[in-house]
Design a protein around this nucleic acid. Structure first.
Lengths: 208, 208
DNA sequence: ATTACGTATCACCGGCCGGTGACGTGTCAA
DNA sequence: TTGACACGTCACCGGCCGGTGATACGTAAT
């Protein structure tokens, strides 16, 4: 009857992790819309005052989350598919496109952080957004070896088109089951998309 | 000193237009984030109660806005470029891609309504979102004539990739000046993108 | 045992949101 | 002239937001 309850664990670094984890899962589950001091504090089971003390408010928390996501993207890109080293620049890009597609489709965190990049005007989520770009670049560098794109082709532009199309299709499929005429609820559609991606990349990088 | 001021125009249909125009310009200028009953009422210089009376609240207003945007997209797609009728299916898609790219880049309303499609989960903005898809389809139908895609090519998938890439690049350029490695602040970058788009479409639809 | 400090909690603020009920006041028909 | 009614306005509600000051409590050095 006496003591209320033992007040909490009283462990700063553990609390900091609780907060960061809560931030991460809120972003993954609710997206940028549901993200805020109150929501993070509630989800972490912690008073929001601690977010101000340990992270310096929303800005600091987002910076920390950005750093966290940067390594998360790196890990996620590298893992689970040491597919054979590509024999051409086109194959390299095929690998990147398919890998990105699968990550975006299976990892809510990946999807939401990509989406946030499009909506954040305040620049508050800048560090969060940059994470993906860095990871893509790092993967390219690590797998590329000495492969060069065929001459006379604007490789950065082609690659941007590919990555952009993958990103948009997955983002749009989240809220609609018919994206630009494709029934994205049907798994077979994604097979078509993958085959078409491969085909388009090969055609774009064929030298002739 | 006596009469306050004449209370307002006392003209329902004019007020309805004021409200709808305010909604449209708020969407164009502030996007989905800034959109709400209070903001629309303020911008229209009208009490929000009227939005409930005339449109039945946010839902009704959004439906009306959706219908409005549907015809707006149609007009915007058709106007300002009766470019020569295409001689191949590839040319047809080139035209669509370039037209969409330019509309998205120059019309904030087009960009924001496309963006809303990605963020709206409540389905509240469904009618707003569908407007674009309908307009693209209608334009295709009107220009297509008897052109057919080459056999053995998944034309819907290719077209979706193209439209998706254009959409993503423009959306992302709104909040960042470096999108997937491309400096989108530099006008020359958009020339590269256009050239690359044309090239990719042609390669994708070459029959051989 | 007392002090000092870091950890955690609570209570409160102003502001904006969507939504609603009650209140004028022009207009036009009975 | 006297209604009835539609158009417009005002005031208010509960709820959530980001942010801050004061307070309780465990712990470790003095």
């Amino acid at each position: 009857m006496t003591g209320r309850q033992p007040k909490r664990t009283r462990n700063r670094s553990a609390t900091e992790i609780r907060i960061l984890d809560a931030a991460r899962s809120i972003l993954a589950e609710s997206g940028a819309a549901g993200f805020g001091i109150n929501a993070v504090a509630r989800s972490a089971g912690v008073d929001k005052q601690l977010i101000y003390r340990y992270y310096g408010g929303l800005d600091g928390l987002l910076e920390a989350l950005g750093r966290h996501l940067a390594v998360w993207w790196q890990d996620r890109m590298m893992q689970d598919a040491p597919d054979r080293t590509p024999e051409s620049y086109a194959e390299l890009m095929e690998g990147l496109a398919l890998r990105l597609l699968r990550i975006l489709r299976t990892e809510p965190l990946a999807l939401q952080s990509t989406l946030w990049e499009l909506t954040d005007t305040s620049g508050l989520a800048r560090t969060v957004s940059q994470a993906r770009g860095q990871a893509l670049g790092a993967w390219m560098a690590s797998v590329r070896g000495s492969l060069q794109p065929p001459p006379g082709i604007d490789a950065p532009a082609v690659n941007a088109l590919i990555v952009a199309s993958v990103s948009y299709l997955v983002l749009a499929s989240r809220t609609s089951d018919n994206v630009i005429g494709l029934p994205t609820a049907d798994p077979a559609t994604w097979d078509r998309i993958e085959r078409t991606l491969v085909r388009v990349v090969r055609d774009a990088y064929r030298s002739a």
